[in-house]
Every structure is written in structure tokens, then in C-alpha cells.
Design a protein around this nucleic acid. Sequence first.
DNA 1: CATCGATGTGATAGGCCACTTACTTTAGCT
DNA 2: AGCTAAAGTAAGTGGCCTATCACATCGATG
Lengths: 202, 202
Amino acid sequence: MTGTPRRDRYHHGDLRTALVDTGFDLLAESGLAEFSVARVARRLGVSTAAPYRHFPDRDHLLAAVATRAATELAAEVERAVDAAGSDPVDRFAASGGAYVRFAATRGAGFAVIFAVDLRDLRDEALSAAGRHLMDRLLDLAREAIGGDTERALWLLEQQVALAHGYVALLSDGFFARPHHTIDHLAVQAERAARTLIRGLEP
Amino acid sequence: MTGTPRRDRYHHGDLRTALVDTGFDLLAESGLAEFSVARVARRLGVSTAAPYRHFPDRDHLLAAVATRAATELAAEVERAVDAAGSDPVDRFAASGGAYVRFAATRGAGFAVIFAVDLRDLRDEALSAAGRHLMDRLLDLAREAIGGDTERALWLLEQQVALAHGYVALLSDGFFARPHHTIDHLAVQAERAARTLIRGLEP
DNA sequence: CATCGATGTGATAGGCCACTTACTTTAGCT
DNA sequence: AGCTAAAGTAAGTGGCCTATCACATCGATG
């Protein structure tokens, strides 16, 4: 995913972007507990002071990573929805599948989008990306059940909770059995979406 | 919850239990990131070395906390199921509500039950408590849908994922709107369980 | 009542981290 | 070509953590 330009020159060229990329990777691989500015720098072969030329502190770097994650997630949802055709239920189910797939593959790199620590930061780019994503998902939910915003909100909430739950369980090693591949989880999420819609009282 | 015996004597009396209690509280309040042996000790007004008389290292203390959490969770599920009467769907829904309620109130104190770091520990008490809990929940799911283990597993998985998701969202501050009280979440979980059962193909 | 083992203490070693400061390199503009 | 400012570095500071060690206290047992 992340290119490995590695240092042959004194200056990096685009360290800011590289920090966000590598931070995202690190988060996805090892979780928030293992995330540190120093580690990101070391992985890039750069001094631990270098990141502070581009971000005032750890949380601002994290916010940039989160914004990137939110944007990427929105793009993947859109791609899946497009591929799903025109049936609104199919489209909503696809968005759920994509959401879970992203969450499962990116782990903490996904969870950080909503991290409360970053909320205090009032980072405009991050909150805009988050709002945009949720608005789009809510539209899809509304179309899937025929316009009722109240129930669409409920449905979306279940879907989002489910996705976060899968990340949690996955990163906790709850799914030890090999048949719980990421594709399998995504399929289960789509199935859950359909089941919820079907089970909703008319 | 936790009694506050505080020190007036040199010896504590029952430090081991107090460490587990306080560790659990700390986890519930502040999450795993804020958890440290030193903090637990300080909160108890005891030296930072004292815990090591009772636990060889941090992870063993965490495992004890997790075991206590699993046992407590199982008890609360049982209580809720008993109170729900005899209809199997009501009973399963109640177990889901209790599960979510516990998860939402205890936060990381719940999540730690499944923490992967502790899995390497092969702590017999912890894994037994976890197994016992899941077996019971699976029974309830099976009864709710009439005996089909395959679908019961699926249902349980959704329920568990949902609960973990609610914790994640809650602790991430996703539910900023005040109507998302813990009771509300528990009710939503029960509703989700019923909706999933109703939506399951026959 | 004396002692011994369990339990608690203070001090300390060693690790990782966030972040700062003074200095160095180099790209890009004039 | 020469200058400046952006972007990098090495070397700290101070903080918090885990874990250990020698020593202090005290309850229980003989």
C-alpha cells in the first residue's frame, strides 16, 4: 500500500503524506496502543523529531490519519454501492458490507475515525469527512426502507454498531476459527442488513 | 461498588481482592489505555510495588479482572433471563439487553474479557468463564429460534458483535445525543434481537 | 511471648514516549 | 551564484510505566 521511498536524500520530499500513510498502516497493523509518533518516524527511517515539523503534536497527526481513513472509507462504500446495481436494499446491504470490510481490514485505522480524543480537537476536515460519510449512509438506509428517517436512523445505527463490533471482536481474536475470513464477515453484515430490513415491522 | 477500606493499618487485609475491584473500576472509567498497575496501586493508597506480591505481572492482574468481569456478566445475563419469563424469544432478547447494558456500563471492563493479550496467558479461570458464558448464550439463542444450532450461532454472533459495537461507539463518543442513554441502548439491542429473529428466513 | 513468613514500603534501574532546542542541509528564488 | 527559509538531525528533558530488591511491619503459630 504505502510506497517505500526510504531515505537516500537528506530531505524526504513529502514527509507529511508519508507520515499519514505510515501512521495509518501502523494503526491498522498494531492498534492504537502501539501507535506512537516515534514509531511512525522510525518506520520511515527519519528522526523522531522530524514529524513535529509537520504536525504540532501527536493528536494532530492522528486526526490527519483519521481524516484520510474516513475519506477512503467513503470512497469504498461508494464503489460497493455502485457495483450493487439499482435495488435500494441491495445498495444498502452493499454499503454495510463495504463498511465492515473496511473496518475489518483496517482495524484501529478505522476505529480512530470516531476516536473521542480527536473530537476535542475540533478538526474541521475530520468532522466534515465523518459527517459526509454518515449522511451518505443515512440516505442509503432511507432509500432501502422507503423514506422513513426514524427507522432509517435505527437501521444505520445497528449497521454501524455491528461494524464496530466486528472490528472489536476481530482485533480481540474472538474469531479464532478460520472460516471467519474478512469476506465472510462482510457477507454476514450484508445478511444482517437484509434480515433487519425484512424483520422491521411495516 | 468497590468498598473503600483505605489504609489505617500497615497491612491492607485483602489487597488481592481490592486490586481486582479497583482495576475493574479503573478500566470501566478510563479504558485500557489508562490502566496501569501503578495507578491501581495509587488509587488504593498502596505502594506501586505492593501489587506484585499478589500478581506476577500486569497481565495476570488484568486476567483476574477479566475473569471477575466474565463471571459478573454471566450473573447479570442470568438475572435478566429469569426476569423475562418463559417465552424463549423474550429470554434471548433479555440476554442481549443485559449483555449490552453490561458492556455499556463497564466499557473496557467488559472488552477486556476477550482481550487477545490475555489469550496467550492461557489462564484457565478466564477461559472457563468465557466458555461458560458463551455456551449459555448459545443455548438461549437456540431455544429462541427452535433448535437450529447453525442459525443460533449466527444470531449469537450478531448479538455479540452488536454489543461490542455499542461499547466501541459509546466510548468513542459517537452517541453524543442525550437520548442515547444506556437503557435506551439496551432496549435497542433487544429490539434488534427480535427484529433479527423475525427477519430470519424460516 | 518470640519468631517467622506473608505482606507492604522506598528506592531504583531501565524503557518508551512526547516534545524542545540548537544546529545542519538543501531546494528554490532572485 | 548566493541567500533564505523550509525541513531535516542529534541530543536532551521530564514524565510515566513495569518490575525488582533490600528492608519494615505485623498476624499467626508454636
